[in-house]
C-alpha cells in the first residue's frame, strides 16, 4: 500500500531534504524526522522522509536468520 524507496540524504535545507536514490534526486519533506544529516539513509514515501534507516537490509536479514536458527536449536533441546 505504501511504495517506499530508500535514499541517501544529500543536503538539508529548512525542513527540506534533497535525497538521492541511485541517481534519481528529489526534494522531500524532512519535517517528520529529527537530527537528520547529509549521508543518512531515509525511507521516502510520497515526498516525505518517514524514517531514518539504520544499516543495510542484507545485514538485518542475515542477523534475523541467525536468531531463527538459534531458536530452532534451543527449541530442539
Amino acid at each position: 500500500m505504501c511504495v517506499g524507496i530508500s535514499a541517501r540524504v544529500v543536503r538539508i535545507d529548512d525542513g527540506t531534504a534533497l535525497i538521492d536514490a541511485s541517481g534519481a534526486e528529489r526534494k522531500v519533506s524532512a519535517e517528520l524526522l529529527e537530527d537528520l544529516e547529509p549521508g543518512d539513509y531515509v525511507m521516502v514515501h510520497a515526498g516525505v522522509a518517514i524514517a531514518k534507516i539504520e544499516g543495510p537490509s542484507g545485514e538485518e536479514t542475515a542477523k534475523l536468520m541467525e536468531e531463527l536458527n538459534n531458536e530452532e536449536r534451543t527449541g530442539d533441546h
Binding site: E31, L33, I50, A51, I53, E54, S57, E60
Partner: peptide, 15 residues
Amino acid sequence: NCYPRVVRPEGNPAA
C-alpha cells in the same frame, strides 16, 4: 519485528 532498521517500536512520534 523483522524490519527494525526502518521500523522502531515507538514508530514516528512526529507523524
